[in-house]
Design a protein around this nucleic acid. Structure first.
Lengths: 341, 341
DNA sequence: CTGTTAGCGCCTTCAA
DNA sequence: TTGAAGGCGCTAACAG
């Protein structure tokens, strides 16, 4: 049988309360007694039953998610995933709140972070803008004892405890590698679409993409990045114009959101041969674009995984438990029309 | 506050024991009383605290995993994943046991299933061989009230409650789609390596592969399937011979295990241009083959995910809870050398 | 058919 | 510095 606190108490010759004090590192135990208890713990191989502990404590973890108020499918997906987590909240002893802030706006994010800090939640997850003010604000939270997890886009310079998102450098490299193979030997130009280079995820994808393109595909020219602010209308206009202005576009890498605009532009583009296209995030739009053959591959991050991972990490950290980093790695999903779920 | 059994008892004007009987669908409650309790449950929006229930029940789920005694990296990976689950067993209230059987051997599998049945575990997971006897044996377990989950390779004709593995048809299609693009316009032959067509996963991958090849790549000839029984030595010999016998091999699809043999054969093959190669399962071998450029893409199923999913499903089913199918879907990971974890 | 009572493993006053 | 006792939400004898 698994040993319980009772067994420890008996073995150490103390009472339950004392065992509990030692286990939870509370004061009021003499060094000698503490040692006896600790010895008993290792001798019997005691591991505390977290479920029972939580039951007794009646603990609930209040968590705050800070998201950009960006209206694109991926963000909606993310919100939905958080909503799902909220639904099974009672079972997981969490109390989740969502705060929205204007997108790509460091100042607004900082303000939100500071406001959230005053509510002293058990943990905070945010889609970060990579700016020094944000680093400082995140660090203030951590300083105040509130663990912070970045979601989707990271701020590595900060003291956030974890980043729940994909390796965007690798994503960019993967896109370049696939696009290079899809284009083949033909020479020509590659268009690159981003949301904003203010967010780290987009910048890193771009870096990864460029580096592999430089290595593998010297016969292709990378055009200047088009920043579409993840806005479908803007993206469509810019891309349509590009297609009109030059006829040698062999490939498109859309590394941000706003893919409704991409699909629209591709659909109406009058080109002899359709360019190879790689986009990010599997949404209604990109899914049908894949099926139609407008898009060749979609790199995806699973919003549900990211949210669940963020919650697990925040809870564990709030309890002072270690995080199994390997377990929490978020994969880059690659979808072709042949392996759509 | 979340309502508890006490609240329900008070609201319905009955005792705790009666509430408990209704909640757990135990007999010995009059229809009228039952209705009152059920009304209270919906009125107060009661959801039972599973953690507390398990604590009170002191329940442990004894689970048996039946694996082929095949010595390849993937099976070792699977065992390791089960081992990891065993380690955190106490926390998850599971008691996991592994049974090994000879690979690709329906009779042995049936015998093992029947033996396991006598031990009346709370659930069974197995890597299945797709044969009528196996269907019958699985159904006997289910008949005996023991939920069964197939792992990695399915037996859809049986009454297993769930399949924890990838969609192998889609995997085969994906491999064909990628290989077609990687090969490009050149015509020639494609070699196909399988372990054994007795297991459903290999057969399905082959079917998916062939169908997309037929659609997309008419200029490529598919050679007869080489069955290497997932045995590296055998695979190496067969493949080496093939490379010697014809010089127009443009691509290789290795849909089984035993990839050490594949890598060895590729490494020493004397061919003017290396064929495009797609293999399954990310292991030490395939990983280094990817890095070396011997293999172009690896399709992978995450053994850890599969094991954890199998456990969740078995536990849920043992408790009569529904399974969230969408949640339990196992993804096909696609690795290029650019997105290796 | 229904209720009383004593736990499951742990935490937390309150006294000593 | 320590211990006794009660309770978290639920289940399971054992009585009525």
């Amino acid at each position: 049988m698994k040993p319980t606190v009772h067994d420890i108490a008996a073995a150490a010759g103390v009472s339950l309360a004392t065992v509990d004090r030692v286990l939870n590192q509370r004061p009021g135990v003499s060094a000698r007694t503490r040692e006896k208890v600790e010895a008993a713990v290792v001798a019997l191989g005691f591991v505390r039953d977290v479920a029972a502990a939580n039951l007794a404590k009646g603990r609930v973890y209040s968590l705050t998610f800070i998201l950009p108020s960006n209206d694109n499918s991926f963000m909606r997906e993310l919100e939905k995933a958080i909503g799902d987590a909220t639904v099974r909240s009672p079972a997981e002893r969490t109390d989740i709140r969502i705060v929205k802030v204007p997108p790509f706006d460091a100042a607004a994010l900082v303000k939100a972070l500071d406001a959230v800090c005053d509510e002293r939640p058990a943990g905070v997850a945010l889609v970060a803008v990579d700016a020094p003010e944000v680093v400082a604000a995140v660090d203030r939270l951590v300083e105040a004892g509130i663990p912070v997890v970045t979601l989707v886009s990271d701020v590595p310079a900060s003291r956030r405890v974890h980043y729940a998102g994909i390796d965007n450098l690798a994503a960019g490299r993967t896109a370049a590698s696939l696009l290079g193979r899809f284009v083949g030997e033909r020479s020509g130009a590659i268009a690159i679409l981003a949301g904003s280079l203010l967010v780290r995820d987009h910048r890193e994808r771009l870096d990864g993409f460029r580096s592999v393109m430089a290595d593998n595909s010297r016969h292709l020219v990378l055009l200047d990045v088009i920043e579409g602010r993840d806005d479908p209308t803007l993206v469509e206009r810019q891309l349509t114009e590009l297609f009109r202005s030059r006829a040698d576009i062999r490939g498109v890498y859309s590394l941000g959101a706003g893919n409704r605009g991409l699909a629209a532009a591709l659909r109406k583009a009058e080109v002899p041969q359709r360019p190879a296209v790689i986009a990010h995030e599997l949404t209604e739009t990109t899914r049908s674009a894949l099926c139609e053959g407008l898009v060749d591959a979609v790199l995806n991050q699973d919003a549900g995984h990211e949210v669940r991972s963020a919650i697990r990490v925040l809870k564990a950290t709030a309890d002072g438990l270690p995080v199994l980093v390997a377990q929490e790695r978020i994969r880059i999903d690659i979808f072709l029309k042949d392996n759509l779920p």
